[in-house]
Amino acid sequence: MKISVAILGATGYTGAELIRLIDAHPHFEIAHLGAHSQASKLAGEVLPGVGGHIAAMTLQPADALLPDEVELVFTALPHGAAAASVFTALEAGKKVVDLSADFRHKTHDVYRAAYGADHPHPELFNEAVYGLTEHVRDQVACARLVANPGCYPTSVLLPLIPLLKAGVIDTTSSIIIDSKSGTSGAGRSAKTDLLYCEINESVKAYGLPRHRHAWEMEEWALGFAGCETKVRFVPHILPMNRGMLSTLHLSGSNTASWFDLLQQAYAGEPFVKILPQGTLPSTAGISGSNRCDIGIALLSESEAVIVSCIDNLLKGAAGQAIQNANLMFGFDETTGLARHALWP
C-alpha cells in the first residue's frame, strides 16, 4: 500500500531533496507538487535534478486544493507563508510535516520575538509536536502535525540535551555556539550576497545580534531538559553546497563523564553517531546521510568543546522530515533514509 504525498514548496532545495527521497521510498508516492512563483511549469523545467514521471508533473499553486487521495503533506514554504497551508491541510484531514518555522514555538510571544510578525493560527501551537525525532518518538507517532526542527537547532540540541538533563552543564552564563553552514541553507531565492563572486573564497557571520534560531534552541533546551539556558549563537555561511558544523563551547562539572553520557543517550540510535574520544566530525563525513556525528574534546575537568555535524538538507530538513513521517504512518523510521555518507 502506498501513501499519497503532497509537497508544497517543491522547487526549493529542501523541496527537491524531499522529491528525491520520497520518489525512492517504498511506502510514499508523490501525488501533488505545489510551488509559488513557478506554478503551471513542469517540475523538470524548474528542477534540473529530477527525472522520470516526476519531471513531467505540473507544478500547482501553493494554495491549490489538495487531491482527495493525499494523506500526507510536507510544507517546505517560507515561514509566515506555511501556516495557512498547514491549517488548510489539517482541516482537510491530512497529516502534515511542516519544514518551515511556523509551528516550532510553543507560544505566540516567542514566535513574534523570533520572527517579528503575528502568527495567523496560534491555536495550533499546542497540537504541533516539535519533531526532534530521537527525543519525541511516541508523540510523533500519534501526531497529525509535526514541526520539523531547524537545521541549526538540530545540530545543537542533539548533543546538548543529554548533558543538560544530567545537570553537568553550567547554565549560569551563555553557552557559546559557533555554527557554519553550506549555502543551500540560505535557500534557492536569488540573493546578491549569494552570488558566486560574493560567496566564493569567503566566510562570513550573519544574523547578529540575535539569530532567530537562538529562541528555538533556548525554548527546546528548556522543553526537553527542563532548565533555563541562554545561548550566544553565531552562524556563518561557507562557500560549499551542503553541510553544517556546530561547535559548542561548554563549561560545567565532571567533563570526564560527558562522553559516556552521550554514548548512553544515543546507544542504538540509527542516525546519531558518537565518535571516539578526541575524534571530531567533518561535513564530508555526513554529506548525503541522515546522520548527526558528534565529537567531544575535553579541555579540563570543567571545560569541553563539542562538535556536531549534519547534512543541513537531510538531518537538518528533508531527512528528519521523512524520519518523522515514517513514524506517523507506523513505518520503521529508517525507511528510505541513508545512514552512510557519500564518499568520496
Rank of each mutant, 00 (worst) to 15 (best):
L262Q: 02
E91Q: 15
M240K: 01
D178Y: 07
H53Y: 05
V96P: 10
A221G: 02
A341I: 06
A76M: 06
E71P: 08
A84Y: 04
I54E: 10
L21C: 09
V73D: 08
E301A: 09
H25S: 13
A221M: 02
A62K: 08
K41F: 12
E303F: 08
L72T: 00
A267T: 01
S257Q: 09
S308D: 05
A318T: 00
F125Q: 15
P235T: 01
A56G: 06
N324Y: 00
S202C: 08
L158Q: 13
R112Y: 14
A256W: 01
A82W: 03
L42M: 01
L238D: 08
N126D: 13
T334P: 04
G12H: 06
A114Q: 15
V305P: 06
D193H: 12
A55D: 03
F331M: 04
L238W: 02
G49W: 04
A214W: 00
C227P: 02
V140G: 15
L8V: 12
D293Y: 06
A225Y: 03
T335C: 03
P153L: 03
S184A: 08
L208A: 09
S37I: 08
E29P: 15
W343C: 12
N148R: 11
L261I: 00
P26Y: 15
H121C: 14
L342K: 07
Y196D: 06
N312F: 01
Y152T: 08
A143M: 13
L337D: 10
L313K: 09
A62E: 07
D98R: 02
N200L: 07
T283S: 03
A35Y: 02
A304C: 08
L337G: 11
R212M: 04
H53Q: 10
C292E: 09
L238M: 06
G34L: 07
E216Y: 14
A297C: 11
I54P: 14
